[in-house]
């Protein structure tokens, strides 16, 4: 058996209990929502909760990675390992990703079932296809969770690397928060640069046909409409992918050379 396969099996065994609890929690929340809706004779509670379960999966990978990495920081078994940091990281990420996919598929099935019932009219206008929209929403959630997961790994490795300088946990948290704020500010500045705008427009694709997720609370006498940006930019996606690759490479370098537990 290869080292990577051994790491995958170890990771799955280590985290399967959290995975099972996560699925049970999703089902329990949906069941509770359904029961409340039956009780108050208004299915909106069920629909909202099901949509929240689906949306919460945006945080699945970051939370998964934090739980798993913190177990490893305590045991020291993961870091005392001669195999490459890429193998250590990707084994965690891959198992987390598989667990997330299973969990989100279950949430997706519950959401589809909810919209197939006669109460589906609250979430979707009559001319919209729930399956089509929910698939788009789920894919966006998966991509966002992937993005957040990589940044979580970066901040975890940085936090533990700063131990090298003998700084206490309060100071290290402060540094992480400041760094997050600085990176956010830099991102905003870059987004406003004319050259970035030009690049953005260069790869822009009109997605108008896929737009809109209507959220109508008609029984409560108001309606709201969440309209997605009808344009996406391939250039922006490519730049974010390059950024994420750089973040992964730097994080693994820290894992190899700087992280202390």
């Amino acid at each position: 058996m290869t080292a990577f396969k051994g790491l995958l099996i170890k990771e799955a065994k280590l985290m399967r209990i959290w995975f099972i609890w996560g699925i049970l929690l999703s089902i329990a929340v949906a069941a509770a929502g359904y029961s409340i809706s039956q009780y108050v004779n208004d299915m909106i509670v069920f629909e909202v909760l099901v949509f929240m379960i689906l949306s919460a999966h945006a945080f699945y990978l970051p939370i998964y990675l934090l739980l798993s990495l913190n177990v490893e920081a305590k045991t020291q078994l993961w870091l005392h390992n001669p195999n490459s940091g890429y193998q250590l990281f990707f084994s965690k990420f891959l198992i987390g990703f598989v667990f997330m996919m299973v969990s989100i598929i279950i949430a997706f099935i519950i959401a589809i079932w909810a919209t197939k019932s006669d109460i589906g009219i609250y979430f979707f206008a009559k001319d919209q296809l729930p399956m089509f929209i929910l698939t788009g929403v789920s894919l966006s959630i998966i991509v966002y969770s992937f993005y957040l997961g990589i940044w979580t790994f970066f901040y975890w490795t940085l936090y533990h690397s700063l131990k090298l300088y003998g700084w206490n946990s309060g100071l290290r948290w402060g540094i992480l928060i400041c760094l997050w704020a600085v990176l956010f500010y830099i991102e905003t500045l870059i987004n406003e640069l004319p050259i970035y705008q030009s690049l953005w427009e260069l790869g822009a694709i009109d997605m108008t046909s896929l737009k809109t997720l209507n959220y109508e609370l008609s029984k409560q006498s108001f309606s709201a409409e969440l309209t997605a940006n009808p344009f996406i930019s391939l250039t922006e996606i490519a730049l974010y992918l390059i950024l994420l690759m750089a973040v992964v490479i730097f994080s693994i370098w820290m894992l190899e050379k700087k992280v202390e537990v």
């Binding site: 058996m1 290869t2 080292a3 051994g6 280590l14 305590k74 020291q76 078994l77």
Partner: peptide
């Protein structure tokens, strides 16, 4: 390296641990 900490993976059996070490 044998750590002073009493923190082996709790959900593992000794057999699992040996198999894992063997791959690493």
């Amino acid at each position: 390296y044998l750590t002073e900490l009493d923190t082996l993976y709790p959900s593992f059996t000794p057999k699992d641990l040996i198999s894992f070490y063997d791959t690493q």
